[in-house]
Amino acid sequence: MTVKDWFEQRKEMQIARRDKETQIDDSIGKLWVKCYNCNTQLLRKEVEENLEVCPKCGYHFRINARTRINQLFDEGTFEEMFSNITTADPLNFTDTESYKKRINQAKAKTNMNEAVIAGIGKIDGNEVSAAIMDFEFMGGSMGSVVGEKVTLAMEEALKRKIPMIAVTASGGARMQESILSLMQMAKTSCAVAKLNEAGLLYITVLTEPTFGGVTASFATLGDIIIAEQDARIGFAGRRVIEQTIRQSLPADFQTADYLMKFGQIDIISSRAELKSTIAKLISLHKK
């Protein structure tokens, strides 16, 4: 084994371990967090100051929509829109718990009213319309509200003739709204068609994790597709694929690096560089 091989193997083992240890170690209290990747105990404050990236190994922790907005937009420029659109329970759905209860729990847990925030803001002075998803709210799943707010954000971009930015973090379509969730894929994708026809720049930022119905609709339709470092992105989940093909998958399967290798994304960006990358792309597309 060469030294290079050893490092490769070590990297793969680290990625393999991540799946199993994706819980924040709460036992030490809120002051400390444990890095999923390198297992180091870290000061919460230090991680926060480092954009929720491990100062030791550079692993990018998942962040919620509000944190993302603070990191991405010029201070005080983001104005939330369409927050009046809230979840209904059209199918009166109940699994082991009712959908209504799950929604209320998600609201209490995240202090959000749905899995996406839409609005207008400035990125290094460039006005954009944006939709930012939040994985903490029911796994960032896309139901009627997410589909509607993403579409409205795109229509706002059309109205104002400004670029559209979508930051995705989602397990896929929301099962509790069944076919209505599936149709949000069509709705948002048709809205992207309008952005295309108007010649407006549409940038998508795929963050950890982006899967299922979101991957198979507006997330992968960006004129430019950026994946955030350490994000896992795919259509089918790892477990489903393993069960279907009955063999184990490469450790780095569906990581941003893996997708880059297969030509599925344009850019991998670290969190620290994300804002300037987007700003640069916008200015490069100006005539």
């Binding site: 198979a216 992968t220 339709l221 259509f235 694929i241």
Partner: peptide, 17 residues
């Protein structure tokens, strides 16, 4: 749509989208 290695590598989600 088929959930497989090759399908993911060649962009199953993108193709549908």
């Amino acid at each position: 749509a088929y959930p497989g290695i090759k399908a993911e590598e060649t962009g199953q989600g993108t193709a549908i989208a």
